Structure formats: C-alpha cells, structure tokens
Simulated assay, not measured.
Amino acid sequence: MSRRHHFHIDHLGHSVSVTVQTGHTSVVEVLVDGKETGHATTKDDRPVTVPIELPTDPPTAVYVRVTSGPGVPRCLLLAAPDGEPHVMAPRLY
C-alpha cells in the first residue's frame, strides 16, 4: 500500500517542498519555488540523497536527504558546503 508524505522548508528566501510516495519503491519529488528540480526512486527503506540548486546569484547547491522508513519518512535539507542539516517539517495536504 502506497502513501504520500509532504515536507517543506524555506531556505535562503526560497521554498523547498518534498513529496515522498512510500511503497515497495519509494518515489521522491523535490520542488523549489513550485518547480520540480529533483526526482529519485529507491527500493525498500533505503535513504536517498537528491542534489538540487536554489536559484540564487550564483546558484546555491543543496541536497535533500530522504529516509522513507521504517515508519514515517524523514526529510533533511543539507546546505552546502558544510552539509549542515535542516529538518524539513511535515505538511498535511
């Protein structure tokens, strides 16, 4: 049985949203300011890291780290270059 989970954070003035669809294969979609900028799939409960860029001048590279299980998925925004983790808050849709 698949289920959708949503996460959000504002970082450097930009909106970063993540949708995680769990199931046998987990699908991760990352949106920055409402535009899809990253996508990944993973089997079982393996963590996945999705590289994205924030549209700053110059563009800022960040990473979204998703752990789809066991249990409720968790999502972190890793800011480059130090990789400082920011917990992304779950959103109910």
Rank of each mutant, 00 (worst) to 15 (best):
H6T: 06
T49Y: 04
S2G: 08
V18C: 04
P58G: 07
V18Q: 03
V18I: 09
D44I: 14
T42H: 08
V48S: 04
T37Y: 10
S17M: 05
P73E: 12
V48N: 03
A40M: 13
M88I: 01
V16L: 09
T37C: 09
V66F: 04
A40S: 07
S15M: 08
S26K: 01
V30S: 02
I52L: 07
R74V: 06
R4M: 14
E53P: 02
H86E: 13
V48L: 10
T42C: 11
P58A: 14
A89P: 00
T56F: 05
V64S: 01
V27M: 13
H24P: 12
S2F: 07
H24A: 12
H11R: 04
D44L: 12
T49G: 10
H6K: 09
Y93D: 15
T37N: 10
L31C: 07
P85L: 11
P55E: 15
G23A: 07
V32E: 03
G69H: 05
V50E: 02
T22A: 06
E53Q: 10
G34T: 04
T41N: 14
T56M: 09
C75A: 12
E36R: 11
D82W: 07
A40K: 07
V16Y: 00
L31P: 01
K35M: 14
A40D: 05
T42L: 10
D10Y: 03
T56H: 13
H24Y: 11
L92V: 05
F7V: 02
H24F: 11
T67V: 12
H86N: 13
T56D: 14
K35N: 09
A79P: 03
L31R: 11
Y93H: 06
E84K: 05
D33T: 08
S15N: 09
L76S: 01
V32S: 03
D82T: 11
G23M: 15
H24E: 10
S2E: 12
T60Y: 05
H5S: 05
P70R: 15
